[in-house]
Design a protein around this nucleic acid. Structure first.
Lengths: 119, 119
DNA sequence: TCAGTATATGAGTATATGTTCATATATTAA
DNA sequence: TTAATATATGAACATATACTCATATACTGA
C-alpha cells in the first residue's frame, strides 16, 4: 500500500506547525490568493507584451491589437483582467481609451525577473 | 461588418513600429516566453506556499505535503516544475531530499508584489 | 436622430494545468 | 537479497483560461 497522503512523516526534522506559523506571521491567508492572481496576470505572453509596451507610453486598444497581431476583442478581454487587478488604468479621449500602467510596481517586477533569468 | 482585426487604426497617435522597436530593444523575443514561464510558476497558491515556506528553511517533500495538506505526489510534481525553472534546488540526505530556494530573486519578487497589493 | 468608430462583453471552444491514482526508482537497514 | 521508506513520474480527469464570434455600449459628427 503506497503511502501518499500521510499526516505524519518519519523523516521530518522540523515541526509542521513551526512552518505554518512562520508563514502565517508574514502573510495573511487571503494574501496568498491575491499574490497568485497578480502573478497569474503576468504569466501570459500577451499580457506581458501589453504591460511592457505600456511602460514606454500610453496606448489605445486598437494600437495594442495592431502591435500584437490580435483582435481588439482579445486585447480588450486582457485589459479588463489587468484593470480588475489595478495593474493598468485608462483615460478617455472622445471615443478612444488610452491605457497606461497603474503604478511602477509592475515594471519593477518584470525587471527583477528579467535579471533573474539573465544571470 | 464589425472591424475587429484591423491592421491600421484611425485613432493611432503613435506608430506601431515605434513600440515594437522599443520592446525589441529591451527584451529578446525568447525572453518574453521565459518571463511568462517564471511568472506562471509563481501563479499558483500551492507553489507560492512552497516557496514561502522554503524561504524560512529547507524542507523535505513529505514535510511540505503535510504542511500543505496535499499528497506527496502532488508536491513532487510542483517541485519538479520549480526545479526545471531553477527556482528551487535540493540536496540528498539518505532517502530524504531537502529542497531550498535556488537564489534570493524569488523571495524578492514575492515581497515586491506583496508591497504592491498592500498599498 | 442616425451612421460610424472604438471598445466591451457573454457564450462557446480548444488547449493548458493541478491533482489523483497507480506504478517506478532510489536509498537504507535487516 | 528483501522489505521499507522517500521521492518521482506517466496517464487520466476536472477545471481554468485565451481566443473567436456575435453582439452590445459609448462617444462623435453630420
Amino acid at each position: 500500500m503506497p503511502k501518499q497522503s500521510s499526516d505524519l512523516c518519519d523523516c521530518r526534522l522540523i515541526h509542521r506547525r513551526v512552518v505554518e506559523e512562520a508563514i502565517a506571521s508574514s502573510l495573511e491567508p487571503n494574501e496568498i490568493g491575491t499574490l497568485a492572481q497578480i502573478f497569474k496576470a503576468l504569466a501570459d505572453e500577451t499580457r506581458l507584451k501589453i504591460l511592457w509596451a505600456l511602460e514606454n507610453q500610453e496606448m489605445c486598444v486598437c494600437d495594442l491589437a495592431a502591435m500584437l497581431g490580435l483582435t481588439e476583442s482579445a486585447v480588450s478581454h486582457q485589459l479588463r483582467l489587468l484593470r480588475n487587478l489595478q495593474l493598468v488604468s485608462n483615460r478617455r479621449d472622445g471615443v478612444v481609451l488610452y491605457y497606461r500602467l497603474a503604478d511602477k510596481h509592475v515594471s519593477q517586477l518584470i525587471r527583477i525577473t528579467l535579471k533573474h533569468l539573465r544571470d
